[in-house]
């Protein structure tokens, strides 16, 4: 019995807990991508860099707060700085929209032109981040590192395996739940949110109903900036802030959005968790789990790992390819016919 419990704790510690944290971060990122896609109808290549910028703003403000001696006790100071970071990246997104994207809406450019334009924006954001804070790896988290330490868990339960929950992991999940709840409340309960869904669903009819497209676009950028900042900050607190990482996150985020069906917010959340858990399940070494479950004589020699962790990016790509082959509209596609 204890062996089974130990095996379960192992899985909880290395797959379930980090999966929920990472999945929350991906889901928030994919939500931003899917909202922009739903309203502006293009894949925003600059979204990863928007996350980096948002996280950077938050980090700079949290440094300032720390220097003033203001903090949240056990929680990371970055949480206190988050609203300011969101505001800063909202400003930036609005300026970008005014200066860059608005023109292409006026000339009704094709989606592919938008993607190229977003490449230009990506370059600029990328340069901005590196120009302001440099390319170095920085620790964003402070306060209490763990909610539950592995050692405490072991002494409390008497098991051999420990279950550790980092503060940043819990913060990720809680923040994501709050952000998603607020987003869905906005989309489903407010007039403006509904008009956004209407515009995303049927642009012509929305225009006929007197919905102002510029206003919808504006709100979309505000939401995308907020979601990107929260996602980027949570990832930064959970791992660390490295400017180049956010471009590598682009693939899992897009994969999550496509799995969920582009333009479908609920699907994006599901997609985020599908990608996160697949990555962890496929790259986890099950040797010790198997050792607990099987008699000693059958103990495996290898790591019992499907794919080395180096290749976790291949997991999101494989899922992406499978979805494109089987159901390009996404596994959680809305009925729109």
């Amino acid at each position: 019995m204890a062996d089974v419990l130990n095996a379960l704790v192992l899985i909880a510690n290395f797959i379930i807990v980090p999966g929920f944290a990472y999945g929350s971060q991906l889901a928030l990122g994919a939500l931003g991508v899917t909202l922009v896609f739903g309203v502006l109808r293009f894949s925003n290549i600059a979204h990863g860099e928007t996350m980096a910028l948002g996280a950077m703003f938050t980090m700079l403000i949290s440094w300032w707060l720390q220097s003033m001696g203001i903090g949240l006790g056990p929680l990371p100071t970055a949480l206190l700085a988050l609203p300011f970071g969101i505001a800063a990246s909202m400003c930036l997104c609005l300026i970008t929209d005014r200066a860059v994207y608005r023109y292409y809406r006026r000339v009704k450019a094709s989606p592919v032109i938008y993607i190229i334009v977003s490449v230009g924006v990506m370059f600029i954001y990328n340069g901005l981040v590196r120009f302001i804070v440099g390319p170095a790896d920085r620790v964003m988290v402070d306060g209490q590192r763990f909610i539950m330490k592995a050692k405490d868990f072991k002494t409390a339960t008497g098991l051999d395996e420990g279950l550790a929950i980092k503060t940043s992991q819990a913060v990720s999940v809680v923040c994501a739940v709050i952000a998603v709840a607020m987003l869905f409340w906005f989309l489903n309960r407010t007039r403006t949110g509904k008009s956004m869904r209407a515009y995303s669903n049927n642009e012509d009819l929305a225009l006929l109903s007197g919905i102002n497209p510029e206003r919808v676009v504006l709100i979309t950028w505000l939401l995308a900036a907020a979601l990107a900042t929260v996602a980027g900050t949570l990832y930064g607190i959970d791992k660390s802030f490295q400017p180049f990482v956010y471009m590598q996150l682009l693939l899992p985020i897009f994969a999550a959005a496509i799995v969920g069906g582009f333009g479908n917010p609920l699907g994006a959340i599901a997609g985020g968790f599908v990608i996160a858990f697949s990555e962890l399940v496929v790259t986890f070494a099950y040797k010790r789990v198997v050792a607990y479950l099987l008699p000693e004589s059958l103990e495996p020699a290898g790591l019992v790992q499907l794919l080395s962790t180096d290749y976790k990016i291949a997991v999101s790509f494989t899922i992406l390819v499978i979805v494109l082959l089987i159901k390009p509209t996404g596994l959680f596609a809305q009925r729109t016919t």
């Binding site: 007039r191 669903n201 729109t336």
Partner: peptide, 15 residues
């Protein structure tokens, strides 16, 4: 608006 409920469709009509 196919993805919206009947009620929401009417609400959007009255936007």
């Amino acid at each position: 608006f196919t993805s919206m409920t009947v009620e929401e469709n009417l609400e959007m009509g009255a936007f």
